[in-house]
Computed example of a mutant assay.
Amino acid sequence: MQTLDTREADVEVDNVLLAGIVGSTAYGLATPESDIDRLGVYAAPTVAFHGLHPPIGKKASKVSTDPDVTFHEAGKWAHLAMSCNPTASELVWLPGELYETRTPLGDDLIAIRTAFLSAGRVRDAYLGYAVSQFKRLENRGDGSFSADTRKRTAKHARHLWRLVTQGEQLYATGRLPIRLDDPEGVRAFGERVADGAIEEARERLAAAEQRFDEIRTPLPERPDEDTVERWLHAVRAAHYAEPAQRR
């Protein structure tokens, strides 16, 4: 049984299949004050799905916020990845040195990472998340706010830039880049927006929407559900044990 060392996080996770460092550290945007975020996939015992309270929905995620650690059960992660959720998807595209736990089933998951992709969902997910970041920026006003709010505003602006950049490249190439090419430029963009340059963020988002319209994507119309299903069946078979007999 693979058990994660969660580094003092208030979460215990057994049967970890794949885990790594994500967030600002992975993107190349970390500062000395940045937390180290971790993300992973685990397998619930197969017999747990046969009872009255299967590990699905909210019960299929184990989360700690101090530090930030999120683990999704394999089935839930698969559904998130097939919706091209940017936060979940990046786990299978990390540089090798950022993985902290890799198992054979985790390696199999990395090997089929393109099976989760589809053109419409990539566009909708990355642009959708970027739009949500922009709305947060709009609600923060013209830059005349507290230092703490300014810090959060700069962070939202950086995430907007990252999402449209990663989304465009994934849509154009079928591969998700994790580390950003120009982290200093992204930080500078965040600071300008935090100073009140909301229009620059609006223009960045509009330009991304136009580029998505212009790109001829190699991505398929639908994810490869058969491949994903075979992987999930392998996970369930590997974690099946006869249920204990009750007297």
Results as ranks from 00 to 15, higher is better:
residue 127 L to R: 05
residue 127 L to E: 05
residue 128 G to S: 09
residue 128 G to A: 08
residue 129 Y to N: 13
residue 130 A to N: 00
residue 131 V to Q: 15
residue 133 Q to H: 13
residue 134 F to D: 03
residue 137 L to W: 08
residue 139 N to M: 09
residue 139 N to I: 00
residue 140 R to K: 14
residue 141 G to N: 14
residue 141 G to H: 12
residue 142 D to Y: 09
residue 143 G to L: 06
residue 144 S to M: 07
residue 145 F to P: 02
residue 146 S to K: 01
residue 146 S to V: 01
residue 146 S to M: 00
residue 147 A to Y: 09
residue 147 A to L: 12
residue 147 A to C: 00
residue 150 R to E: 11
residue 150 R to Q: 13
residue 151 K to H: 14
residue 151 K to R: 15
residue 153 T to N: 11
residue 153 T to P: 05
residue 153 T to H: 13
residue 154 A to C: 05
residue 155 K to D: 10
residue 155 K to N: 14
residue 158 R to K: 15
residue 158 R to H: 07
residue 159 H to G: 03
residue 159 H to K: 07
residue 159 H to D: 11
residue 160 L to I: 12
residue 161 W to G: 00
residue 162 R to H: 02
residue 162 R to F: 01
residue 163 L to C: 01
residue 165 T to P: 06
residue 167 G to P: 01
residue 167 G to E: 00
residue 168 E to V: 15
residue 169 Q to S: 07
residue 169 Q to I: 08
residue 171 Y to I: 07
residue 172 A to P: 02
residue 173 T to C: 07
residue 173 T to E: 10
residue 174 G to Q: 01
residue 175 R to T: 10
residue 176 L to V: 07
residue 177 P to Y: 11
residue 178 I to W: 05
residue 178 I to D: 06
residue 180 L to S: 04
residue 181 D to E: 15
residue 181 D to A: 15
residue 182 D to T: 07
residue 183 P to T: 05
residue 183 P to E: 08
residue 184 E to D: 10
residue 184 E to K: 04
residue 185 G to A: 10
residue 185 G to P: 12
residue 186 V to A: 02
residue 186 V to D: 02
residue 188 A to F: 05
residue 190 G to D: 06
residue 192 R to D: 04
residue 193 V to Q: 13
residue 193 V to F: 09
residue 198 I to Q: 06
residue 200 E to C: 03
residue 201 A to W: 00
residue 203 E to M: 05
residue 204 R to D: 04
residue 204 R to N: 07
residue 205 L to F: 09
residue 205 L to M: 09
residue 205 L to G: 08
residue 206 A to E: 15
residue 207 A to M: 13
residue 211 R to D: 12
residue 212 F to I: 03
residue 213 D to C: 10
residue 213 D to V: 12
residue 213 D to L: 14
residue 214 E to P: 03
residue 214 E to D: 13
residue 214 E to H: 10
residue 220 P to E: 08
residue 220 P to L: 11
residue 224 D to L: 07
residue 225 E to K: 15
residue 226 D to Q: 06
residue 227 T to N: 02
residue 230 R to Y: 03
residue 230 R to H: 11
residue 231 W to F: 06
residue 231 W to V: 09
residue 232 L to K: 11
residue 234 A to P: 04
residue 235 V to N: 01
residue 236 R to T: 04
residue 236 R to Q: 04
residue 236 R to L: 05
residue 237 A to F: 10
residue 238 A to W: 08
residue 238 A to C: 07
residue 239 H to V: 03
residue 240 Y to D: 05
residue 240 Y to F: 12
residue 240 Y to P: 01
residue 241 A to P: 08
residue 241 A to D: 14
residue 241 A to H: 14
residue 242 E to P: 00
residue 243 P to M: 00
residue 243 P to Q: 00
residue 243 P to V: 00
